[in-house]
């Protein structure tokens, strides 16, 4: 892996990775057997370190993992889980916002609508998708696609991965606030199940706009928060450097959200995080979504709608 792939707490992991790779490059000598043994020894050591490190990530470390540039993004999930995917563009009001990817396709044979934020993987795609920060058009496209899902009785799968809605001039001009509010409202309106999966960063209003769902899943090392730790730190601690403290205080990890009754399930990530094995992460997510959707097979449209309403009415209420 290149250096971009390592987080600041992964120094020893990077070291072993490098040594393993180095040994694998040595070829043609007589003592191959010894080398193999050394490699497998290092691999065992690596597994142990990965397990240990990832078992006790701090909330701030999880935030970093959730934002990892190599982490599978929305389009990776679509490519891995959806067949016959047809990308659908535009809000029919102003424009096309590629920060939100949407379309129809088949999930395990069944027609579904997919909506998610895409952050991009390199400079070109990051710019194309505006780093996953949607403008009003993105949310209005989401509303349009939810209506489409409702009309043709297709479940909605959303993939949440955004630092937040785009805080720019044009967004305000065109009603960012109204667009998000309407997207939340649209989530409540549909008579089909919505399964939302937080795959990386669930950033505030821009995230919940497409996460008002019958089932809310989170990847093990993803985060979901009312404000970024940096933003919170700069307001409450008056110092953006205190992000670590803010991350702890905000209770933004998947485990916290499960305890708080805000999400339904946590999807276990591959050893060392989803970025070390994107394929496995995507497949496990597919399993979890499939399980979540099955709960609604025998429900009427009205029951599905009501179930979602009751869930949110009860949510955050003390027992």
């Amino acid at each position: 892996m290149d250096q971009e792939a390592y987080l600041d707490f992964e120094k020893n992991i990077a070291e072993i990775d490098e040594r393993i790779e180095g040994l694998r490059h040595v070829t043609g000598s007589d003592d191959d057997f010894d080398l193999d043994e050394e490699v497998s020894g290092l691999e065992k050591k690596l597994e142990k370190i990965l397990d240990q490190t990832y078992a006790k990530l701090t909330p701030w470390q999880k935030t970093q993992v959730a934002r990892h540039p190599k982490r599978p993004h929305c389009l990776d999930y679509i490519n891995g889980l959806i067949t016959d995917f047809q990308l659908l563009a535009g809000d029919r009001l102003f424009g096309e916002d590629e920060a939100v990817v949407g379309g129809i396709g088949r999930f395990r044979g069944r027609s579904v609508v997919v909506i998610g934020q895409e952050k991009g993987n390199d400079i070109e795609t990051r710019l194309k998708h505006n780093f996953g920060m949607a403008k009003p058009e993105g949310y209005r496209k989401a509303v349009r696609l939810m209506k489409l899902a409702d009309q043709f009785n297709m479940p909605v799968l959303t993939f949440v991965d955004t630092a937040g809605a785009y805080p720019g001039l044009e967004g305000e001009e065109r009603g960012q606030a109204e667009a998000i509010a309407s997207s939340i409202d649209a989530c409540f309106s549909v008579g089909v199940p919505i399964v939302a999966t937080v795959i990386g960063e669930g950033g505030s209003g821009g995230a919940i706009a497409i996460a008002v769902a019958n089932r809310i899943l989170m990847l093990e090392h993803s985060v979901y928060s009312v404000i970024s730790p940096e933003g919170c730190a700069s307001i409450l601690w008056r110092d953006g450097q205190e992000a670590q403290k803010a991350a702890e205080a905000l209770r933004l990890t998947a485990q916290d959200l499960k305890d708080l009754g805000v999400i339904d399930d946590i999807i276990a990530e591959p050893r060392g995080g989803a970025h070390r094995n994107p394929t496995e992460a995507v497949l496990k997510t597919g399993e979890a979504i499939s399980g979540a959707l099955a709960d609604f097979n025998d429900m009427t449209r009205e029951q599905i709608r009501r179930e979602r309403e009751e869930k949110f009415l009860k949510m955050t209420r003390a027992e």
């Binding site: 509010a181 939340i184 989530c187 409540f188 505030s204 209003g205 919940i208 008002v212 979901y224 928060s225 009312v226 205080a249 905000l250 209770r251 933004l252 916290d256 959200l257 708080l260 805000v262 949110f312 009415l313 949510m315 955050t316």
Partner: peptide, 10 residues
């Protein structure tokens, strides 16, 4: 935290 964000939906 997240509990306040959920009030947007509620």
């Amino acid at each position: 935290g997240i509990l306040s964000l959920m009030q947007m939906a509620r």
